[in-house]
C-alpha cells in the first residue's frame, strides 16, 4: 500500500496513535458531523432529543479514539466501518434504554419498540432489519464499500482512496458487487 497522503485519515490515525493531539482534533472535526447526521437517521425521534443525540455521537467518537491505540485499521474505510459499528451499538443501546425508561420493562420488546427512526419511516422496519442482518454477513471490505456508498454517499474517488484501490472504476466495481451480494444475503435471510 502506498504511503498515505498528507492529512489523510490513515496518516491522521497513525499520528493519533503516536499521541499527536492536533491530528486527533482534525480527525474528530473531519468525521463528527457526518457521523452525527448518520446517527440522527438511525434514532427514533422520541428516543433522544437533538442535543443528546449529538452528545451520544460525540462521546462515542471520543471513546473510540481513546481506544484507537489498539486498533490498526488497514485503511480509512476500515476506520469508518469501525466507527459505524460502535455508533450503531450505541444507538441500539440507546433505543433499548429508552424502552427501559418507559413503562415497558416487562413488555415484549418486539411489540413495544419506540417510534420508528427516520430510516425505518422511509423504507419500513422489515426492510431495514433485512438490510442490517445481511450487512453483517458481508466481508469487511464489502461492508465498508456499502457503508461509504449507500449510507454516507461518498464518491467513487473517495471510496477508492479509503479502500486503497487504484481507481474510481475499481471502487465502483467493488461497490456494485457488494450490493449484489447484499441483495443475495437479504433474500437468503428472508427465507
Amino acid at each position: 500500500m502506498p504511503d498515505p497522503a498528507p492529512d489523510s485519515t490513515a496518516l491522521l490515525l497513525q499520528q493519533v496513535r503516536a499521541g499527536d493531539a492536533a491530528a486527533r482534533e482534525r480527525l474528530v472535526a473531519r468525521h463528527l458531523p457526518l457521523l452525527r447526521a448518520w446517527a440522527h437517521r438511525r434514532l427514533p425521534p422520541g428516543a433522544r432529543g437533538l442535543a443528546d443525540t449529538d452528545d451520544l455521537v460525540q462521546v462515542t467518537f471520543v471513546r473510540a479514539l481513546n481506544q484507537v491505540q489498539g486498533f490498526e485499521p488497514r485503511h480509512e474505510g476500515a476506520f469508518l466501518a469501525y466507527l459505524r459499528q460502535i455508533l450503531l451499538n450505541a444507538v441500539r443501546d440507546e433505543i433499548r434504554r429508552g424502552r427501559r425508561r418507559g413503562p415497558h420493562e416487562e413488555v415484549d420488546p418486539e411489540t413495544e419498540a419506540p417510534g420508528p427512526s427516520p430510516l425505518e419511516t422511509a423504507i419500513g422496519r422489515d426492510a431495514l432489519e433485512r438490510y442490517d442482518r445481511a450487512f453483517g454477513q458481508l466481508g469487511a471490505e464489502q461492508q465498508e464499500a456499502v457503508f461509504m456508498r449507500v449510507e454516507m454517499g461518498m464518491t467513487y474517488e473517495e471510496i477508492a482512496g479509503a479502500l486503497g484501490k487504484n481507481s474510481a472504476n475499481t471502487a465502483r466495481m467493488v461497490v456494485s458487487r457488494a450490493l449484489a451480494r447484499l441483495a443475495l444475503e437479504m433474500e437468503d435471510g428472508n427465507d
Binding site: P33, P118, G153, L182
Partner: peptide, 28 residues
C-alpha cells in the same frame, strides 16, 4: 431486495440533504 437497497440509499441521501439544510455539513 435490490430495490429495497435503492430505497434505503435514497432515504440516506434525502435525510442527509435535509440535515445539511439545517447546518450539518461535512468536515472541518
Amino acid at each position: 431486495r435490490l430495490s429495497e437497497i435503492a430505497a434505503l440509499q435514497d432515504a440516506h441521501d434525502r435525510l442527509a440533504a435535509s440535515s445539511a439544510s439545517v447546518g450539518v455539513t461535512a468536515g472541518a
